[in-house]
Amino acid sequence: MKTLVKLEIARTLRNKKFVFFSVLYPVLLYVLIAGGASEDELVKGTKLTLPLLMMVSMASFGAITAVLVGNSEKIAKEREKGWVRQLRLTALPGRGYVAAKVASASVVSLPSILAVFAVAAAVKHVRLDAWQWAALTGSIWAGSIVFAALGVAIGYLATGDAVRPITFIIYFALAILGGLWMPTTTFPQWLQDIAAWTPTHAYAALGQAIEVGDAPHLKDVSLLFAYLVLFAGGAAWLYRKDTRKA
């Protein structure tokens, strides 16, 4: 499985388009949204300035791009080309293939997180304690596994032609509803109530709690864990279903 993980990482890093969208795109969005914002004024309904709020949001957005979009498209295309079927003929167990996809996606999500942090510190003078930087990196990186599992599930659900539109509809809907592009405090109350139960909202909330010096809230951690069980369970069921078809 280690060999497959290394292969997946190498293939991903050679994809310049993927690197742009997962690393540079979130950085550009951060500069566009927070570049001209006040470094002192708090966003209404929060304890954070817009540069701090969007730093976590864009780091999370970049990580989701790496693990969700990358996984779903690659798996759907590999199924279509027969690569997954060939792997089933080797000694690699099915769970090994899925684990390799999740692990490799999680590894390549790290540069997108660090790039946003670096730009926030350089351009908007974001300053945090060392433990906060470490905790932010760890929580956003670990939380991306939830969306990696979702990417695997979509990859087994959709065909090669349909996977991109399906993925991007889910991707943008989760980003918008979760408040990754704009604070959810700007939403109507009914939409805020819905957004509070999305995985992206809970994901961003982990980092936002750390930025104000608190531990991540139990509700957000529990919600993310529930989504991980749901997405991973769905991926496992779809994998078994795909195996029976083969």
Rank of each mutant, 00 (worst) to 15 (best):
L52F: 07
A63L: 11
W83E: 15
N71I: 05
M58L: 14
F18Y: 14
Y30Q: 00
A76F: 01
T185F: 12
A148N: 08
K6Y: 13
G178W: 03
E41I: 05
W83T: 15
V212K: 02
K44G: 15
K245D: 14
E211R: 02
W197T: 04
E78S: 08
P216C: 03
L136V: 00
T159E: 12
M58Q: 09
V43P: 01
T198Q: 05
G233P: 00
Y227A: 01
L128E: 06
R244K: 13
V27N: 04
T49S: 04
L150T: 02
A158D: 04
V69Y: 11
K81W: 14
L218H: 11
D129Y: 12
L28S: 09
Q192C: 07
S22L: 10
S104N: 10
K6D: 11
I9V: 13
S222F: 15
Q86T: 11
Y30D: 02
F117N: 00
H125Q: 10
F168E: 11
G233H: 03
R88E: 13
P93A: 04
G82D: 10
W133I: 04
M58H: 05
I166L: 14
I166V: 13
A148K: 02
M1R: 10
Y156I: 03
W181K: 03
T12S: 15
S222L: 15
F20W: 13
V27L: 05
D214Y: 05
Y97W: 14
A173W: 12
T159G: 15
S104K: 07
W141G: 02
V221H: 09
A118H: 07
S60A: 15
I33R: 00
D214V: 03
D161G: 07
P188A: 10
K74A: 13
I169T: 15
S222W: 14
L110A: 08
V126L: 06
I113G: 04
F61I: 04
F21P: 01
A236I: 05
A120Q: 01
